[in-house]
Amino acid sequence: MKESNLTFTWRMMLLAFLLPPLLILAIDITFYGSFKGIDSNVSFTRFSNATLTAYMLCSLFLLGNLFFYGESRNRPLAPLVGMFFATALGVVATVFFIGQGPMLLEDNGSVRAQAIYNVVHMFVSSGAILVAMGVALGVTFSAITSQKQRNNFELEEE
């Protein structure tokens, strides 16, 4: 007997992904009448620092990848220089915005301290993301392999 499948849509996937935080927000609004515990200024500072740091580190990683791209193209200099400038722009933007004062400066005393804190913070966040992805993918895989072996011919006959 074939089960009826849901229609695949990206909106549905996105909604499923955002469901837990949306549920917490709904519970908070129901019980406390407001978004309890959210300080928009602090959250914005964290969001901006995370954006700048992720852009900077990811650009550096992709800059490294351009060497492999160059292998098949007789090592052209133009994309390497372009990506180098894009990465440098990220570094300059990070330093500039942190240097503007309390907007992006968290509890740290200087631009350098904040920049180093951002990088270490990013390592910890990335570690948490990797472990969470490992758990989600691993459990999905183990849920699939723990079922009875399927007979492909039966499926084809249906």
Binding site: K2, E3, N5, L6, T7, F8, T9, M12, M13, A16, F17, L18, L19, P20, P21, H121, V124, S125, G127, A128, I129, V131, A132, M133, V135, A136, L137, V139, T140, A143, I144, Q147, L155
Partner: peptide
């Protein structure tokens, strides 16, 4: 930093994976 990020992302990814299995997989309800 680690603990809330890990827990909320695990919940989000597992929920997304569950819906994906229902949408793409054949007889993947279990």
């Amino acid at each position: 930093v680690f603990w809330p990020t890990f827990i909320i992302l695990t919940s989000c990814l597992a929920s997304c994976s569950a819906v994906t299995l229902l949408m793409i997989g054949e007889q993947r309800k279990a």
